[in-house]
Amino acid sequence: MEPILQVQHLTHTYGVDTPFERSAVEDMNFDIQDGEFVGIIGHTGSGKSTLIQHLNGLLKPTSGRILFSGRDIWAQPKKIRDVRFQVGLVFQYPEYQLFEETVYKDIAFGPANMGKTGAELDRCIRNAAEFVGLQPQYLDRSPFELSGGQKRRVALAGVIAMEPRVLVLDEPSAGLDPEGRESLLRNIRDYHHKTGGTVILVSHSMEEIARNVDRILVLKSAHVLMDGAPGEVFSRSEELLAAGLDVPQITRVAMALRRRGVLVSPAVYTVEELERELLALRKGGAGC
């Protein structure tokens, strides 16, 4: 099957011909398959934000190209808006983009820009609100009287309502408390499960990425440093740490255990996995 997104030799340089010239993304290459749940992790300044703004054509590559369903998104620059409807991008702290009088109208902004009207528009809005866990009675309220977490859900619904084939989320849980974070991520997992759409999750938190995605892209100074399943990536924890990136606390416990002669797998990254391995070890070693 053809990948939904292909990034080919993507380079983006800011401030060309000035003393501040700097490549935020340099010769990046990767494919994303339809229906994948991909995590992107990297430091501030590793090129994450620049990369994701290329996926929906907000930024234009300095060189290289992005293919959506096999077609270069910049083949017809006039149709770039269509790409934005197909690749929905939710920015960091998206609640700061709300502007309408009611939640309903705000969620409608995207799909209405697509030309949707009437019952179709209404369906999109209500579906999106349900996906992010917003009760229908909120739809008529002003978004500005909601709590921070609810505002963020409204903003997220505003992008989901466009029914994009790829949903890109930049730090969707930033600043939320543990409960808010977990329930928002549960909504995103359910969304992925129910729609079968492609989801790209950008995060600083290794724990958050580890618990949710099928595949991780690790970025470092404008390049892809690693690309693989969470187990594969975290089994290279030493490299991650050397690159100045964090690894999940549980992986660090596993590393510390290995140093103490308890031979658990280096690829564990959740509490449940490590617990299972340790219990198995105990049973295996019960004879001694």
């Binding site: 703004q53 929906n56 907000l58 808006r81 934005r84 409807f85 929905g88 991008l89 939710v90 920015f91 998206p94 700061y96 983009q97 502007f99 902004f109 995207g110 820009n113 697509m114 505003g158 992008v159 466009m162």
Partner: peptide, 27 residues
């Protein structure tokens, strides 16, 4: 940032007459 976020939702700041463009600035 806000402009990029609204563009990601399909906002169009470039076309339309003066009145439409002024309205497009609201978001």
């Amino acid at each position: 940032k806000i402009m990029s976020a609204q563009k990601a939702r399909g906002a169009d700041f470039e076309s339309g007459n003066l009145f439409q463009r002024a309205r497009a600035m609201l978001p």
